[in-house]
């Protein structure tokens, strides 16, 4: 018979404290998660409200926004190209394998790959780049500012930290995720073509290849690509800001909060992607649910 030590933690909890305690614990967890989601949605709502108000865009806020775009977007272009190129190579290798295995032509595989790139891979990779480069940096920066009373200094000068610190950073991440996703998709396609052409898998000229891709592009791609990059980027930004500003007044909390916010943001991006897939396509994996 297994001992209590060998049982999974939740069963151990049940074993030790009884069903009421377990129900209490589950309730606390659910309420805690709901509070977190509500808080993130509130931050996003406040960001939208502040962003559309012209009086929010004072010279210092514009400057912070420009710096954030430069850091998250422009400085991330090289990384995005590298990621795109590397994943482009992986995809073309997979495509070559499928062509051999299924005995089909490039014309059959190319549209599937293109859809996978535009609808799934590029937005996800862009969010990974933005979170890895900027999200964790943002949460570290905000946590350090909070611990060093810099947020209080802003507040004391009549500067809303939400307007000056949070809104430009979230917007910067959203725009960067969107632009980097386009760059990653382009990078994948170019690399895929170059490698495929070099391997002899693609025989058509570049313009014909490009024309084929453009013909494959339909409104559903746009409906998926735009909200996925924007909503996932917004959630990632809001989570990083929220986590950064949740630190207690100790410098030792900063690294813990930063790493935690990275994981939270990644989790949110995957969840948002999955939820959007379900909502847009009406399918959850292979099961039609709508």
């Amino acid at each position: 018979m297994p001992t209590a030590r060998e049982l999974p933690s939740i069963l151990r909890l049940l074993f030790r404290h009884g069903p009421l305690r377990v129900a209490e614990w589950v309730g606390e967890q659910v309420l805690g998660r709901l509070a977190t989601v509500t808080s993130i949605l509130a931050i996003l709502w406040a960001t939208v409200r502040l962003a559309i108000r012209p009086s929010s865009w004072t010279p210092p806020v514009r400057s912070i926004f420009a710096r954030q775009l430069l850091f998250s977007g422009v400085d991330g272009v090289a990384v995005a190209c590298r990621f795109g190129a590397a994943v482009g190579v992986l995809i073309i290798v997979q495509a070559a394998l499928w062509i051999d295995m299924l005995g089909v032509t490039t014309d059959v595989i190319a549209p599937m790959l293109w859809r996978a790139i535009v609808r799934e891979i590029a937005p996800l990779l862009a969010c990974l780049v933005v979170i890895g480069r900027s999200g964790i940096a943002i949460s570290t920066e905000l946590a350090t500012m909070l611990v060093n009373h810099e947020v209080e200094v802003l507040d004391a000068q009549g500067i809303d930290p939400m307007t000056a610190l949070v809104m430009p950073r979230i917007l910067g991440m959203v725009i960067s995720a969107f632009c980097l996703a386009i760059i990653i998709a382009a990078s994948m396609v170019i690399t895929g073509y170059v490698i495929g052409w070099g391997m002899g898998a693609i025989h058509v000229p570049w313009m014909t290849f490009l024309d084929g891709i453009i013909r494959e592009f339909n409104s559903l791609d746009l409906i998926f690509f735009v909200p996925k990059t924007i909503i996932a980027g917004a959630f990632a930004g809001a989570i990083c800001c929220s986590d950064g500003l949740s630190v207690r007044t100790s410098v030792t909390d900063v690294p813990r909060v930063s790493s935690r916010s990275g994981i939270h943001a990644l989790t949110a991006v995957f969840i948002v992607s999955a939820v959007l897939s379900v909502l847009i396509y009406g399918r959850l994996l292979v099961f039609k649910i709508l």
Binding site: N148, E150, E152, V153, A156
Partner: peptide, 20 residues
Amino acid sequence: HFKMRSRIGRVFESDAWIQN
């Protein structure tokens, strides 16, 4: 409140600067 604070000049005892 922010508008009111904008009309208060303050010298802090410590931690008075935005480091970046």
